[in-house]
Amino acid sequence: MTDETVVMRGVTRRYGRQDAVCDFDLTLRAGECVGLVGHNGAGKSTLIKMMLGLVRPSAGSVRVLGEDPAVGAAARARRELGYLPENVALHPSMTGAETLAFYARLKRQPVTRNAALLERVGIAPAAHRRVGTYSKGMRQRLGLAQALLGSPRALLLDEPTTGLDPALRQSFYEIIRDLSRDGAMVLLSSHALAELEGHVDRVVVMNQGRKVADGSIAGLRGLAAIRPRIRLRLAHALRAVANESNAWAGWSPVSEGVLELSCEESEVVSVLRGLPISAQDIEIIRPSLDELYAAFQKGAI
């Protein structure tokens, strides 16, 4: 068994004339927690559906856990796969416990472990109420519980945290971290890069069906080459710049008494060392993830 959980080679999926996914290469390994980021309609869900075999690629090949997911024989691979669809839909007339039991049986998992699973996602008290009475957050947790059935080796979560409050979101990420520590591959899709910070090892950015970036968030920062800016407050800033133009070369006034300098990451320390004691409120402004994301989406890189 290789540790390559998902391998996609030159995958294209066309809907009519439009390419939802175009010439996509992707390798996801066991133990990795990967964020798939793109705006709505970038092709994230199509990509995940191709990994599940729900949608067949127009061109290219998809292997999940060593099998082609679109072939009926992929039943074995699917038993080791967990999927949480975007806006998970569950049968409203069944209770939480019944829903989980139904899916556990389909996956040939003992139903006895379900109670612990419901406990883990925090809906044990509501296990015997109908899903129709659940709040969005509870449905999402039950959805996560069904994805966790049978300790899957690959988890595909399509926008799992939309509509969850921050506290829930944290507990959600904790569960995901535990899983990836146990050696499962976790793929999380999201439309906001900032949200994934600190939760994923690697980010794949998609735009209009194409992969525009692939790497760690720090790596993406380097790749984006958006320079950090240093900003400080100085009394009589304009006069200082005029009098000592050598020392303040490159600095530009932003507003009354505030100066700003854009420099390379490697120069930050030397610039700070050279500052006079009278400089106040020194700030280092690095590009936010949203700016980074916007830069990738614009195709600037």
Binding site: L52, A75, Y83, P85, V88, A89, L90, H91, L106, K107
Partner: peptide, 14 residues
Amino acid sequence: DRGTMALLLAYPVT
């Protein structure tokens, strides 16, 4: 339509 089919088909069911 409701989206339950996508989830069901992700299970080992033909």
